[in-house]
Design a protein around this nucleic acid. Structure first.
Length: 823
DNA sequence: AGCACGCCGACT
DNA sequence: GTCGGCGTGCTC
């Protein structure tokens, strides 16, 4: 090793940039270098970022002069080598930039980027005569408020381009700018109170007590402190400030008074927000013989295979088996990751797990604050306490050291796949890859597995364990079909409810039982149509109809969020005869209120569960039987264990079945089977009513017969005939541009290029179902890959072809994104 | 992502 | 003319 060599590091920036970048390291920082630590670096003219060290080496870049780093931020790495390897795998497999993976993986509190702040120059004396109007406005604002950011300046001068003005003012030495690097993370601190040295002596303490006779509140505070800290036997023990306040019934300012008088001293300690002091409940939950048998089957599969699929009908007691497995893994001093879809992460599950495993458990999902997330992250990185993480898909990115098992419950859920933005990763598939880094096992659980996973089990790639018995031999619900076509023909459908459904709701209400109604569409009605010419109100930015929301009295676009207030005339013929068509949860709720005026009706959809609290409130009210009928979207199908539900209604099976997607039938089956599982939990057999125009549809028949296997067989025939996953792998390239003809031309060019090498593996280009979103026209090219050994070569070719497309002047501005294994 | 550079329309 | 908006390219 040469003596004068300097170190260089390749870093990952928290940005969507295609490369890693090389920086030079000053001698003084060399000892601090470690892969996974963050360094502060300047990227571009002035912006600063906290970037992750990916590689440390001696190779000076050939074609440019590397910048020096600003500093090494961390004392310890924030990501470990397993995580970095995972990031690289995701970027590679899902065809995105590693910076995008970093953005998804690191909680916001660990990401650093600078913001430009504008301040008055220290030598500025207030002369403003020579300034123009806009410059004057900025200086004036800075005299009011000493620090401004660029957005604030934009609004002050009311224009988008402010940099030339700012630069001019800098040249005039009137203002300066600085790059302010801010952290969002604030550790939680707890204040403790102790006596000051002086009053620890007995005489001075006594004197103090005498002196405080005139201030009874302060005396009381002092006495309470002495009592809580057990001062006379244990000495000057610190007491938590809040505890002292509560016990002495005083407030912070009264405590501060004593601090001012130098009687108390305060110190703060950083604490972690993960579960503290929760007791582990060592009582072993007894498994039934059936559950023990199934657990042993799983363990036997794990001897041979890395992944096992556990197919268990609702309430077959999967959770107890999960718990036993978790127990086993943590007794080997390994960690467990328990993934669930966000909507299934209910308080019920969280409290069950924390009650059993105490402070070994942490929960991690998107409704957590960034501070809470960083605390979980740090505890995993630095501590040794956490053994079990329960979370949604992003908890895959936490810093595990010795993962022994990943459980993925509701494995079939499509929300495990991230759609927007990149990385478009599937948490199940990524978890299987990740587990292999640790040589650990994966358990997939579902009542209605995804076709892919079931196929992999059938092909002997995964182990498979089936649980067909419901716990306590509870019966499967009785499923009835209401033929809407027939009811309409007989003119018995005046509302969106069939006579059969109405009759059963009425009966359930009479018996004081609860009802769940499922309609996979929020809002009041999905479109507004002209009675005269058939015109439909469309979103002006997207290629979809606008949904009417009665509550807010707005027409909303569910794709871009745009809304319109009132529409009186037809956009084509100007007629005023406009009617809302179709129905969503809101309309169902309204019709119900008319038919059953005495019933308490609640609605659970995206619109009613925006806040964390409202979601729990809805579930709570239903659990406590305050609600008679719950109307909802997907949300009602998951994780709710209610005992009193006698009836579940699916209002329109057709809207599921007619979805333009190769997975529509699979999804319809899964959704209907899942809602059905909500009916009749204890003692009684529940009822499910499915309303449909197609009572003879094979999927409906499979749902009635609860025949997953038949659904699977038929689906596989279609997937083979029309070549869809799991028979092949799919990648969809989506091209976007504001100019429709540009997208068409670029898509045509790219498809031609791809076809020249891959032939009929390339489909399209074609318009997706929604051809325009947020004023961007879309076009898809689908790649079907039957030989999975060629997967990475084909991805390489795709990247290269996109680069080639970008070489052409006419096509270079078209945005291309890749979706690997689309959902 | 954010910033510089260069092109082009519209307003003093 | 010039200012400000906007597309394009580059950042170690």
């Amino acid at each position: 090793v040469e003596i004068n060599q300097t170190y260089f590091i390749d870093v990952i920036l928290p940005l969507s940039v295609p490369l890693t970048y090389t920086y030079r390291v000053q001698k003084e920082y060399e000892v601090e270098l470690e892969i996974g630590k963050r360094v502060l670096v300047q990227f571009g003219k002035k912006k600063m970022y906290g970037a992750i060290i990916q590689k440390i080496h001696y190779e000076a870049p050939q074609n440019y002069q590397a910048k020096y780093i600003e500093e090494v931020i961390d004392q310890y790495p924030v990501v470990n080598s397993f995580q970095l390897k995972l990031w690289e795998w995701i970027a590679n497999y899902y065809m995105c930039h590693i910076g995008e993976v970093m953005l998804a993986a690191l909680p916001a509190g660990l990401r650093l980027s600078s913001e430009t702040k504008v301040l008055l120059h220290p030598d500025f004396e207030g002369k403003t005569e020579h300034l123009n109007d806009k410059e004057f406005l900025i200086v004036e604002a800075l005299q009011q408020q000493p620090i401004l950011n660029l957005f604030e300046i934009e609004s002050i001068v009311n224009q988008k381009t402010v940099l030339p003005i700012v630069k001019h003012l800098i040249n005039l030495k009137i203002i300066v700018t600085e790059e302010d690097v801010k952290t969002q993370y604030r550790p939680k601190k707890i204040s403790y109170i102790q006596l000051t040295e002086h009053y620890c002596k007995e005489e001075s303490l006594k004197l103090l007590m005498d002196k405080l006779q005139k201030a009874p509140k302060q005396l009381q505070l002092l006495m309470t402190f002495l009592k809580i800290s057990d001062f006379f036997t244990k000495g000057n023990q610190a007491v938590e400030k809040l505890v002292l306040q509560n016990q002495s019934q005083s407030n912070a300012s009264q405590v501060n008074e004593l601090v001012k008088k130098d009687i108390f001293k305060v110190y703060e300690r950083e604490i972690n927000r993960t579960n503290i002091g929760l007791e582990e409940n060592l009582e072993i939950n007894q498994l039934s013989d059936y559950q023990i048998e199934k657990l042993n089957e799983i363990l036997a599969h794990f001897e041979q295979k890395d992944v096992t699929l556990l197919q268990g009908v609702t309430s077959s007691g999967k959770t107890e088996i999960y718990f036993k497995l978790i127990e086993k893994i943590i007794s080997e001093d390994k960690q467990v990751l328990f993934l669930m879809p966000e909507i299934a992460l209910t308080t019920q599950m969280i409290s069950r797990l924390t009650k059993r495993f105490g402070e070994k458990v942490a929960v991690y999902h998107s409704k957590f604050s960034t501070n809470e997330r960083v605390d979980v992250w740090r505890e995993l990185m630095e501590g040794n306490k956490l053994k079990i993480i329960l979370g949604a898909r992003s908890s895959l990115f936490l810093p595990f050291k010795n993962l022994g098992l990943i459980i993925i419950d509701e494995e079939h859920e499509s929300t495990f796949k991230q759609m927007e933005p990149a990385p478009r990763y599937h948490a199940r598939d990524t978890a299987i890859m990740y587990a292999s880094f640790f040589k650990s096992k994966v358990l997939l659980g579902s009542a209605t597995p995804s076709i892919e996973s079931y196929y992999n089990a059938k092909e002997q790639k995964y182990g498979m364990v089936e649980m067909t018995k419901r716990f306590g031999d509870m019966q499967m619900p009785e499923i009835l079909v209401a033929d809407i076509k027939e009811a309409k023909r007989k003119r018995k459908m005046t509302t969106n409810f069939s006579p059969m459904l109405l009759e059963h709701i009425e009966k359930a209400l009479e018996e004081k039982k609860q009802v769940i109604l499922f309609q996979n569409r929020r809002g009041f009605s999905p479109y507004l149509q002209c009675e005269t010419c058939g015109w439909i109100l469309y979103c002006s930015n997207c290629d979809v109809s606008m949904t009417y929301h009665k509550f807010s009295n707005l027409y909303k676009c569910h794709y871009c969020g745009a809304s319109k207030q009132k529409v009186h005339n037809c956009g084509a013929c100007g007629d005023t005869q406009l009617t809302t068509k179709g129905f969503g949860t809101e309309k169902i709720e309204e019709e119900l209120a008319v038919i059953f005026p005495k019933a308490v009706i609640a609605r659970m959809d995206l619109d009613t569960t925006k806040s964390k609290n409202s979601y729990f409130q809805l579930i709570n009210d239903f659990e406590q039987k305050k609600t008679d009928i719950l109307v909802g979207t997907q949300m009602v199908t998951k994780g709710l264990d209610f005992d009193n539900v006698a009836l579940v209604g699916v209002l329109s099976a057709d809207s599921l079945l007619s979805f333009p997607d190769f997975r529509a039938f699979e999804r319809s089956f899964q959704l209907m089977a899942q809602v059905s599982g909500r009916a009749g939990r204890k003692n009684e057999r529940g009822k499910v009513i499915i309303q449909t125009y197609q009572p003879e549809h094979p999927i409906i028949l499979d749902v009635i017969a609860n025949d997953y296997k038949n659904m699977y067989r038929n689906e596989m025939i279609d997937r083979r005939n029309f070549l869809y996953p799991p028979i092949c792998r799919m990648i969809i390239l989506t091209l976007k541009d504001r100019d429709k003809s540009k997208v068409d031309a670029a898509a045509q060019f790219l498809a031609q290029l791809l076809k020249s090498k891959l032939g009929n593996a390339i489909l399209g280009p074609e318009y997706p179902t929604v051809g325009k979103v947020r004023n961007l026209y879309l076009k898809n090219i689908t790649i079907k890959i039957t030989d999975k050994n060629k997967l990475s070569a084909i991805k390489g070719f795709l990247k290269q072809s996109v680069l080639e497309l970008k070489q052409h002047k006419t096509h270079k501005s078209v945005y291309v994104l890749a979706d690997v294994d689309p959902q």
